[in-house]
């Protein structure tokens, strides 16, 4: 079955692409190979095929043939919209984009990046490989929802999903943008339950993402800017602690800090930190080689953690 339908779709594309004038439906049904059965069956087949080709992104133009055939529109595929046109693409650029496409590795968008590359490679431009680098990056699979989210944002459909958090589990969102930031993928959009723009980490999505069946349900505000909504790491007050570190230990900590004083086996450093939780984990990781001198609250938070282990 698949064979016959594929064959018919290819024949239809060829015929509509080759024609200079609009082809009448009756001409198509009579001449393009693959249309069989009763008149009604053929017509239904043709309607479906048109939709299918359009879903592949092929533009089918509908036009009037001439005044005598008012009731019968004609069809053709404009060559200009069908064919890929990247003016003055150089071999170096083609190589660059091929290297970049390796980023997707085996994630869900990899086949799309590859088919895009194949099209560029079909333009007849020889790729040159004169780069000083061979990027071999890979990202951990940025989850299966990327493709659906791309679609949702494109057609402005609302999404709902279960989100792994202590408070609200089911979320309803007008999706604005997918953001790659700090090594993680996020979705940013209008959280309909909270009536505010929120950021969601894709790795915390649970199960399926549901797309609303409607399109154009919302507008992304014209002045929307992702940067305005990222947690303000730089603006947040950076805290500082005094830490004793044994010599030969905690090299990364020492590199980050400012040496204040030295005694036999220990040096005392002033170290800035942003996030108390991660900072405490880092300090504890160093065991007895690292000690908090000040502030007292940080010290008691550390002792709380240890008591938690000992309870």
């Amino acid at each position: 079955m698949s064979d016959r339908k594929t064959e018919r779709l290819i024949n239809l594309t060829l015929a509509l692409l080759a024609t200079k004038r609009y082809l009448k439906k009756s001409e198509i049904l009579a001449n393009v190979f693959g249309y069989e059965g009763t008149q009604e069956a053929k017509e239904r087949m043709f309607e479906r095929d048109k939709d299918d080709l359009r879903s592949l992104g092929i533009e089918i133009e509908v036009g009037d043939l001439d005044p005598f055939f008012e009731d019968e529109p004609g069809y053709k595929i404009p060559q200009k919209s069908y064919e890929l046109n990247v003016p003055n693409l150089t071999g170096r650029e083609l190589a660059l984009i091929s290297i970049a496409a390796n980023f997707w590795n085996d994630s869900v968008l990899a086949p799309n990046a590859q088919s895009g590359i194949r099209k560029l490679q079909s333009l007849g431009i020889p790729a040159t490989l004169d780069f000083e680098f061979r990027m071999k990056y890979r990202f951990e699979n940025p989850t299966f929802v990327l493709e659906q989210l791309t679609k949702a944002i494109g057609q402005k459909s609302r999404v709902s999903f279960d989100y792994d958090s202590t408070s609200l589990k089911e979320r309803h969102l007008e999706p604005y943008r997918i953001v790659f930031w700090n090594g993680y993928w996020y979705l940013i959009g209008m959280d309909l339950d909270r009536a505010a723009v929120r950021l969601f980490k894709l790795s915390r999505f649970l199960g399926e993402l549901t797309l609303s069946k409607k399109k154009n349900e919302f507008e992304i505000p014209l002045d929307f800017n992702v940067a305005d909504h990222l947690p303000k790491v730089n603006v947040e007050i950076v805290k500082s602690a005094t830490i004793r570190i044994r010599k030969e230990a905690g090299i990364l900590l020492r590199n980050r800090g400012q040496l204040i004083s030295e005694e036999n086996d220990f040096g005392t450093y002033e170290i800035a930190y942003e996030n108390e939780v991660t900072f405490l984990r880092e300090l504890i990781w160093h065991g007895v080689n690292v000690q908090i001198v000040e502030p007292a609250e940080l010290k008691s938070a550390l002792l709380d953690l240890l008591n938690g282990v000992l309870k």
Binding site: Y82, A100, L109
Partner: peptide, 28 residues
């Protein structure tokens, strides 16, 4: 090749995948 001399234009998701790849490369 009959009328298939040139590749088809890219669809949105192909274009998206390539543009993001380039952005990621650029960010490094």
């Amino acid at each position: 090749p009959q009328s298939f001399k040139k590749p088809r234009s890219m669809n949105k998701i192909e274009m998206t995948s390539l543009l993001v790849s380039l952005d990621l490369l650029k960010s490094l």
